[in-house]
Simulated assay, not measured.
Amino acid sequence: MRIAVIGDLHYPELTTDNQFIAGARQGFYETFMERFFSIPADIYVSIGDLTNYGTEEELKNIYSIIRRHGKQFVHVLGNHDVYGLKRKEVLEITQQQRFHLVETDSAMLAFLDTTREQDLNDCGGVLDPIQQEWLESVVEYSGETPLLVFGHHPIYATTAKSHEPMHYIHPHVQIQEILQKKQGPGLYVNGHNHYNSIALRKRWTFLQIAAVLDEQAARIIEISDSLISIDSIDLSDSLLEEQAKVIGDAINHFSLRVDPLGTDADMKHLIPLVPATKKTAAKAASMVNL
C-alpha cells in the first residue's frame, strides 16, 4: 500500500490587500496539486490546514482543483480549516468525515480531528472524549497489525517544536497513554508546526511534515509485509518556489520559515514489521466509519 501525504497547504482567499497574488495563487496550487496527484498512490492525504482561514471561497476553490483529479483524498481537519466556518459547514462543503477508520490488507488508518472550532486564541490541539474512546478501541482492535494515525497536531514532546505552547495536543488529553497500549508498530503523522521531524517513542514513530509554501514536497508512506518506508518526493521547481514566496509573504495567518526545515534524518525512515494477526471481516466491518 502506498500513501501520499502533504503538509499544511494554506490555500488563501484573495482580499483587497493581496489581489496581486491571484496569478501566483492559481499557478502555484494548480501545478502543485497536479504533481501531487500524479504520484502513484492508493490514497492521498492532507494533514490539515488545507486552507488558510477556512472560508467558503477557500474551501470551494481548492476542492474544485482536488476533485478534477478523481483520486481517493482524505482531508484531516487543521485549526485553520475551522476558523471561518463551523466544523459542520466545513464537512458539508468538503464531503469529508470528521474522524474515521480505514482498514486495508496492509494496515489500519485512523484519521482524527484535533481542532478547536473557531478558536482564534488557542491554535493548540485537543481530542474530545468521544474520539479518545474511539481511538482506544481502534488501538486495541488493531493488535499487532500496523496502525497509522493521522492528526493535524503533534503529540506533546515528540516531533520538533511540539513542546512549545499551542504546538501540540494538550497533555490533559490521554492520547500518549492510549497510543502506548498498541501491541504492534504504530506511526503517527502530523503537520501544524511547519517543520520536518521524525521521532521514536517505544513502538511508535512520529512523523511531522513541513508546510507546502515552505517546501514543495510530498511524503510517501509505503507498507509492505516486512516494513513501512517513509520517503520524500521533491515537487518543486524555480517557478513554484517563486510563486510560493509571493503567496507566503502576502497572506495573513501564515509566515514563511527562514530557518532550516529539518535534517536529512527527518526525511526518510524505515520501520521493520513482523507478520500481523489477521482480523475477521465481520469485526473489521463493525469498526469502519464509526
Rank of each mutant, 00 (worst) to 15 (best):
I155N: 07
L9R: 02
M166N: 10
Q131A: 12
F73M: 07
I247S: 06
V139E: 06
M287Y: 04
Q216D: 06
V139F: 09
L50H: 08
P171D: 07
V126F: 05
N61Q: 13
G78L: 12
A107M: 09
S197W: 04
S236Y: 06
A107H: 11
K60T: 14
G262C: 05
F37A: 05
E164P: 00
D113F: 05
S286R: 14
K86R: 13
M287W: 00
Q97K: 15
T94E: 02
F36Q: 09
N190P: 05
D259R: 12
S142K: 10
D128R: 13
Y195A: 06
A250D: 03
F99A: 11
Q216S: 15
E136D: 13
L109A: 03
Q72Y: 05
I93Q: 08
I47M: 08
H170L: 05
A244T: 13
Q183T: 02
S142D: 05
N252D: 14
T94A: 09
L91W: 09
T263S: 15
I271S: 09
F20G: 05
K86T: 07
Q180D: 14
L85F: 01
I6P: 02
Q118G: 08
M108N: 14
I93W: 06
D49F: 09
D237K: 12
E92G: 04
E222K: 03
H163R: 15
F254S: 11
Y83R: 15
H192V: 10
R87Q: 14
G184E: 06
I220A: 01
I220G: 00
A285Y: 06
Q131R: 11
Q19P: 00
L147Y: 12
T145W: 06
E30L: 12
K182W: 11
Q183F: 00
A284D: 00
I175A: 10
E164S: 05
Q132T: 03
V74A: 02
A284H: 01
P185Q: 14
F20Y: 13
F20C: 01
S137C: 00
D122Q: 08
S46R: 09
G125F: 05
D17A: 14
G191E: 04
L120S: 10
T104Q: 04
H269M: 14
S142E: 07
K181P: 02
D105N: 14
T51W: 02
S226A: 14
R203Q: 15
A4G: 04
D49K: 14
E13M: 13
T280R: 11
L207H: 10
L200I: 14
I93T: 07
H10Y: 06
E241D: 12
H100T: 10
V90E: 02
H152Y: 10
K88D: 11
V102G: 01
H163V: 11
F73G: 03
A244Y: 11
L50K: 06
A250N: 05
D17G: 01
L148H: 00
L200W: 07
N18Y: 01
V45K: 03
E117T: 10
E222T: 07
R25C: 06
Y156T: 01
V102T: 11
Y53K: 12
A217N: 03
D81H: 09
G70E: 02
A41Q: 03
E222L: 00
M1T: 06
P154Y: 09
S64I: 06
G27T: 10
H269Y: 15
L147S: 13
I169T: 06
A250T: 05
Q97F: 08
I209T: 07
M287F: 10
G84E: 03
H75Y: 07
Q131D: 09
